[in-house]
Write a protein that binds this DNA or RNA. Sequence first.
RNA 1: GGAGAGCUGGCUGAGUGGUCGAAAGCGCUCCCCUGCUAAGGGAGUAUACCCCUAACAGGGUAUCGAGGGUUCGAAUCCCUCGCUCUCCGCCA
Length: 422
Amino acid sequence: MLDITFIRENPEVVKQGMLNKGEPSADAVDEAIKKDEEWRGLVTEIGELRAESNTKAKQIGQLMGQGKKEEAQKIIQETSRSKEKIKELEEKVGAVRRELDELLYKIPNVPEPSVPVGHTEEDNEIFLSWGNPAADDWREPHWEIASAKNWIDFDRGSKVTGAGFPFYLGDMARLQRALINFFLNEAVKNGYIEMQAPYFVNEDSARGTGQIPDKEDMMYTIPRDELFAIPTAEVPVSNFHRDEILAMDELPIYYTAYTPCWRREAGSYGKEVRGLNRLHQFDKVELVKFVHPEKSDEELESLREYAESLLQQLNLPYRTLLMCTGDMGFTQTKKYDLEVWSPGQKRWLEVSSCSNFGSFQARRMQLRFKNEKGKTEMVHTLNGSGLALPRVVAALVETYQTEAGDVIVPKVLQPFMGIEKM
RNA sequence: GGAGAGCUGGCUGAGUGGUCGAAAGCGCUCCCCUGCUAAGGGAGUAUACCCCUAACAGGGUAUCGAGGGUUCGAAUCCCUCGCUCUCCGCCA
């Protein structure tokens, strides 16, 4: 959610950003400004009425204390009249505030000036490419390799749970465990605090990071206990400091957490979801940063560089995309996607998304800090995957497959697996 | 799952219907005193929002776990929920 004061002072910037992000109309901006005016008017009016009745209540208290009951009685009668007016206004102000909040929830974060304006993924900018994508004809997609080696059991996963919930077996299971260890170790080396987070969150947390109301259908729910299965560790980790005021010298704070992620992925179909390309449950190591507002731009770059370093160490060719305004999402000011090359499928697979949210999430979460002047100010939040497992595994297996059909274990993972070949 | 106790400012803790945004202590900040140290004296020290202002200052409202209710008036009474602690049960 954006700051209404910022919207009031920069309506055109907000409107332009909204249209650039592909919203059909920016009318919500003017409507919000109008609602805000109405709301402030009502708040002022109520404040005055309450001030009056507070004064009278105090007078009554004094008179009662002095034993002047009749005089007190007189004032009591006067007061009960304005009571109803206050109640009426309170209901109205509550309704107007809800309407205002609803409008504010509809206004997306404003893209950074450096973000290319565009509508579709065609307009994303290739920020950089690394490595030489393999293009040999003999390379197979990972699901062929996995099935030959009996590494992934999709059918039994479907029997036990449903489509998109595979079992991993033998060396494949060990590979995933190795990747998780490798990613976490690297993150800790780079200053991230390792964290184990809850896999379910409550409604306030889902709202805090914007899953509700924007992306409610993405999550699995546990209605009886009013909980949501996390679609990413971003949700519990970002909400860790919700409703807090941090000291300035605590910033920046970096966290990393491994969790499974659950996503309903309603409406997905076809070859896009073949094999490990898209699952309902998958593993991911997530990176979350809480930073000083002035630092968030450079923090996004270092987050991106860190995520890239993982692919470099695994020696997997990738490219980094700077997402255009229309493809970047509601809550971000700027976003990079890392795509790894899948030589068996001959396509790029997204394995990380590094985003700067500015104060957008922090405002929803009421996460603030005391700045240089001792004023409370919203922190800036960023997050990125470091990395998401299944597609890394897919690209890795396809890239490290030998013509003889084995899969070599990447050097950096060998210490974790204790073998050189799967 | 059952029974009970509790939730007050950065912390400890007082406050059972009126002058309480809240005693006292600790901590912290500033000032004074004191030739180190220690001690002492004084002032200040929550958050959000609204109004006003060039700004500072100022005025107002709300907040004593959350939400609702009773009342002219609620930290104090009532209801619902959350959380913490103790005991019992169960359990990886």
